[in-house]
Amino acid sequence: MAATQEEIVSGLAEIVNEIAGIPVEDVQLDKSFTDDLDVDSLSMVEVVVAAEERFDVKIPDDDVKNLKTVGDAADYIAKHQA
């Protein structure tokens, strides 16, 4: 069953916490991965791959650069998840 937006954001928070060590409560919809959460371009790839596995979604390289904020990623996942 498709995850709700709330479940997606909390899942992303756990992933960002695991990869970049950012507290889960800091991972909010309006936060920028690079500017606010210290997730650089390479860590972003790790976040994306973990999100793909967790939410059963494909996020091609060309789309990764459009995912600036946690909200962007949550929307993308909600729209594309199987």
């Binding site: 371009s41 390479l42 790839v45 790790e46 791959v49 390289d61 990764v64 650069k65």
Partner: peptide
């Protein structure tokens, strides 16, 4: 292409 290479390589 840094991100694409990183994903593939890892």
């Amino acid at each position: 292409e840094g991100q694409a290479v990183f994903r593939w390589a890892v």
